[in-house]
Design a binder for these strands. Structure first.
Lengths: 352, 352
DNA sequence: AATAAAAATGCAAACGTTTTCATTTACGGT
DNA sequence: ACCGTAAATGAAAACGTTTGCATTTTTATT
C-alpha cells in the first residue's frame, strides 16, 4: 500500500538524463565538474533540468561522497543578539561556498552541547564551529573519532588545542580597564557573568583584575559582582551597587550588562560620565546610538563569522589534514560618551 | 587508491548488529520503534552501540524513509535581533521533536529567497517556515510540487493562502495608534520601514493610518516617513522630524526605530513623555529596561516559534494532508513611560 | 588517411540505512 | 504437551546519487 511514491512528481537525475539523451552519470558530472562534459551536452542537460524543474538531491549524493555540504554552528544563545551577528555572517559566507548552516543553541550548558553534537553528527556535518574553549571531552572525542574539522570561535588563545579564530578577550578586558585607569579611576567596580562556564567572561575578568593589580590597586570583593547577560537584571544589580559602593567607574563584562548599568544610572539621576564612567565589551547594536553612547571594546563579530566560514570549508576540503591555526583578530577600544576623567567626577561630587 | 574509508573508525549499523548478535534490521528497529524489539535484545543492542560509540546516520536513513528530520526557516535577518528570539525558540522546540533547524537569511530580498529555497530543498527538508506573506511564485511552486509543508509566520491574516501562525500586525498598528489618540494626540508622526517588500510593516502602517482616518484626523505627508530597521538611522531621521514638524507623538513601526527616536529626543533634550510620546511595536530586549521605558505592542515571538515548530512537524508527519489553518496569537499593548496624555505636553510647552 | 593520445560518456557497483515479506520464536489456553 | 496466534527477528531489495573502470568518440599528430 505504501507504493505511493512520496517524491510526488519531482523528477530525479534519471529523468533528466533520459530527456537529455545521456546517462545519469553524465548529468551527475554536469553538476559536480561541468568542465568534464562537452558544451553541447552541457546545454542539453541544462535545458532538460530546467524543463523538468529538477532539484538535485544532495543527500543521496552525500551517501557516496561523504560530504553533506552542511556545517554546524553551536552558539550559547541567539536570543541575546550577542551571537546573532556572528551567526548571520557565518551563514552568509557559507552560502557563498555552496554550504548551509545547521545551527543550535546550548544555553551555556556543556552537557546539552554533547547531545547537540551527536544530533549534528547524525546529520553528517562536514565541519563544526564552537564558541570558546570550554567543551566536554565527550563531545570533542566524538568529533575527533570521525575526523570532523572543529573550529573554536570568538576567543583567541595562543596555545589552544583547537584551531581558533577570534579576538583576545583578555586583551579586551585589559583595554577597557587601562582606559579607566588612564582616566584616573580607582574606585572601579566589575560586573561580569558567571565565569565558571564561560571562558570569554573568565578571560575578560581575570585580565581586568590582573591589570588592576599591576597598577597596585586593590579591589575589594564588594566591587566584584556576578551578573548574567540580561539588561534588566544588570540594571537591578547596578542600582544597588551604585548606591552602596559609590564606584566612580563600572567595568562591564559585556555591552548588555553595560546597557543595564547606564539605565540604572539614568533612573537614579546619576550623570554619566560626570559622576560615573561605564565601559562595555562587544559593541552591540545600540551601544553607539544610545544616550549617552557607550565606551566599549569592539569585537569583530562579522569578520570572525566570515573568516570562520572560509576556514572551516577549507578544512573540510583538505580532509581535516590542515595544521591547527590560531587567527587573532584585533579588538579596538572605542571611546564614546560614557567615560571621562575622574577629575570632573570629583568636582561634581564636591558641588553636590 | 581511494579505498581509504573516509568514515574513519566510525562503526556502522552492521558493526553494532554483529557485536550484539542480531541483524542490522533489528538494530534499525531498536532506534525507530524500540517497542518492537524484546527487552533482552534491546539491552544488548544498547550496550553494543554504547561500546562502539555508534552514531546513526540519519542521512542514509532518509534515503529510504523520505524524511530528513530537518526543517527549514528563512528569516529576513538574524542581525537585528528582530527574529533572533523567534529562531531561538523555533530551534529549541524542534529539538524536542528530534528535528534540527536549517536556517538562512534572505536580507528582505525575495529573489535571494528563491535560491535559498532551492538550496534547502536540495538538502531534503521536511517542511519550511517563512516570514510573512510576500513570496515569489517560483519559490512557492518549487515547494508545492514536492509537497513540502509550508508555514507563514509572524503576520496573521484571515484569508492567507498558506497556513499561518502569527499575531495581527494590523491590530498591533491599530492598538498603538488608538493608544496615542486616547491620550489626546493629534500631531502624530509615523516612522515605518519601506512597505514595498514587507507585509508586516505594510499592515502596521496601513491600519495606523486607517485608524487616524476613522477618527477624522488628516495626516500630512510630512508626518509619514520611511525608515529602515536601524536605530542609528532612525535617530538621524527623528532628529530632523522633531525639529521640523514638532509632533506631539511618534508612532514607530518597530521597537528598533522607537529606540532611535527615544535617543534622538534624549540628545535634543526633549522630554519623553512630557514633550513627546513614543510607541514601538515588538517589545524587544531593551524596551522594558531603557530609560524612559518604551510603550509598545508585544508580539509573542517565543510562542510563535514554539507553535510553529509543533505545527510544521505535525504537518510533515501528516504528509502535508492537513487543512490549512490560521492561528492568531494575541498582541498586547504594553504601556510604559514613553507615552502620556497630550495635556501635560501642552503645559510643558507653555512653560518653555 | 591512419593512428595514438586525450576527452567524453556509459555501466554498474557502491554509500548505510529502512522496510516489506517471510520465517522463526515465544506465549496463552486447553 | 500441543496448537494457534501474536510477537520478534532475519534476508534482501530498495532509496538517488557518485565514481572507478571500460568503452566510445573526438582531437591531434604524422
Amino acid at each position: 500500500m505504501n507504493r505511493v511514491r512520496s517524491r510526488k512528481g519531482a523528477p530525479g537525475i534519471v529523468e533528466v538524463a533520459i530527456r537529455a539523451g545521456v546517462s545519469p552519470a553524465t548529468v551527475s558530472r554536469f553538476y559536480n565538474s561541468p568542465d568534464k562534459v562537452r558544451p553541447g551536452t552541457r546545454h542539453r542537460i541544462e535545458q532538460s533540468a530546467r524543463d523538468l524543474g529538477y532539484i538535485r538531491d544532495r543527500m543521496a549524493g552525500s551517501m557516496h561522497s561523504r560530504f553533506s555540504g552542511t556545517i554546524g554552528l553551536i552558539v550559547p544563545t541567539l536570543n541575546n543578539a550577542i551571537f546573532a551577528e556572528l551567526a548571520d555572517s557565518f551563514s552568509r559566507q557559507l552560502g557563498s561556498h555552496e554550504r548551509t548552516m545547521l545551527i543550535a543553541c546550548n544555553n551555556y550548558d556543556l552537557d546539552s552541547e554533547v547531545d547537540i553534537v551527536r544530533s549534528l553528527l547524525e546529520r553528517r556535518i562536514d565541519g563544526i564551529a564552537l564558541i570558546g574553549h570550554d567543551h566536554t571531552d565527550t563531545a570533542l572525542h566524538m568529533l575527533s573519532v570521525r575526523d570532523i574539522p572543529v573550529l573554536s570561535l570568538w576567543n583567541y588563545r595562543k596555545n589552544a588545542e583547537l584551531s581558533t579564530i577570534g579576538a583576545s578577550n583578555a586583551e579586551a578586558g585589559e583595554l577597557a580597564t587601562k582606559h579607566l585607569l588612564d582616566l584616573g579611576h580607582e574606585q572601579i567596580a566589575f560586573m561580569c557573568s558567571d565565569t565558571a562556564i564561560n571562558d570569554r567572561s573568565r578571560d575578560r575578568k581575570m585580565s581586568a583584575l590582573a591589570t588592576m593589580k599591576q597598577h597596585d590597586i586593590t579591589v575589594s570583593d564588594d566591587m566584584i559582582l556576578d551578573c548574567p547577560y540580561n539588561t534588566g537584571i544588570a540594571k537591578t544589580i547596578a542600582t544597588a551597587l551604585i548606591q552602596q559602593q559609590q564606584p566612580t567607574a563600572i567595568f562591564c563584562g559585556n555591552d548588555v550588562i553595560a546597557h543595564g548599568v547606564v539605565y540604572a544610572a539614568l533612573a537614579l539621576g546619576i550623570k554619566i560620565p560626570e559622576q560615573l564612567s561605564v565601559t562595555g565589551i562587544g559593541d552591540f547594536a545600540n551601544s553607539a546610538d544610545m544616550v549617552p553612547s557607550l565606551t566599549t571594546v569592539r569585537l569583530p563579530a562579522k569578520r570572525i563569522g566570515q573568516l570562520a566560514a572560509d576556514t572551516i570549508v577549507a578544512m573540510s576540503m583538505a580532509r581535516n589534514q590542515l595544521p591547527t591555526t590560531h587567527s587573532r583578530l584585533d579588538c579596538n577600544l572605542i571611546v564614546r560618551e560614557s567615560t571621562c576623567a575622574v577629575r570632573a567626577n570629583l568636582i561634581q561630587q564636591q558641588l553636590t
